[in-house]
């Protein structure tokens, strides 16, 4: 068990982290090249492109199209997935120790609340996508994986931080947490999650959104 814990939190975590970070960077560079070569970019001009993307990214604008509740849930998950792994006290200590840096920390109450909200939001989003045939149609098999892994990582992470509430032994809970987190990182550049750095995608949607609003 100890060897598995060390493997999943050491070499496997490093592998997953590099895949996630460099994979997303590669997606970004590749798509930036496509945008730079796209005729649409040159037709509209860089300022228009940036304005359109910004307008698309703002949740209040998008909410008109997808419904406020769905937008809020998505943004809770986005905030949870970024803030908790990076700035929760336990994680922050590991980052700081590995990188020899003073790593910022969010108060324990905030990270606890955000974890609970993220768990609920992820579960609701999963249910909505299961229930709604339109969503289900665009979700490929592989796209379910990061959502399930994220839910597993957050639940197990919460139980690692509060061992008294865990029905499993601390080592087993930690192992599930490490495995699911590593798995989530590995899937990031190859699933729909990568779309957050897909400029052409955002650009296309932004232009489309603008046309709809003006119409």
């Amino acid at each position: 068990m100890q060897a598995l814990l060390e493997f999943t939190s050491g070499p496997m975590f490093r592998l997953a982290l590099v895949v996630a970070v460099l994979g997303m960077a590669a997606q970004f560079v590749q798509n930036a090249l496509v945008v730079a070569r796209s005729s649409a970019t040159w037709q509209h001009g860089a300022r228009d492109v940036l304005r359109a993307i910004f307008s698309w990214v703002l949740p209040a604008r998008r909410a008109r199209r997808f419904g406020l509740a769905g937008e809020i849930l998505t943004w809770i998950v986005a905030a949870g997935v970024v803030i908790v792994p990076l700035f929760y006290l336990g994680h922050a200590r590991l980052w700081g120790r590995s990188l020899h840096l003073d790593w910022p920390v969010v108060p324990a109450a905030v990270s606890d609340l955000l974890t609970k909200l993220t768990m609920v939001a992820l579960a609701l989003l999963l249910l909505v996508r299961l229930a709604n045939s339109q969503y289900r149609a665009v979700m490929l098999k592989f796209d379910w994986l990061p959502m399930i892994l994220a839910l597993l990582a957050f639940v197990s992470g919460y139980l690692v931080a509060h061992p008294g509430r865990s029905p499993l032994s601390p080592d087993t809970t930690a192992l599930i947490h490490f495995f699911s987190a590593d798995g989530l990182l590995l899937t990031v550049p190859f699933t729909r999650l990568a779309r957050c750095v897909l400029l052409p995608d955002a650009f296309d949607k932004a232009i489309q959104h603008r046309q709809e609003v003006s119409a």
Partner: peptide, 30 residues
């Protein structure tokens, strides 16, 4: 060729995938 930007699934070109795999493998083994 660079992949079609309108493809449903984001696809990395083979060179990028292999670069990331090499970097990840080396970092894991250090």
């Amino acid at each position: 060729r660079l992949p079609d930007i309108h493809a449903f699934r984001p696809r990395l070109i083979r060179g990028a995938v292999m670069f990331v795999a090499g970097a990840a493998m080396a970092t894991a083994l250090l």
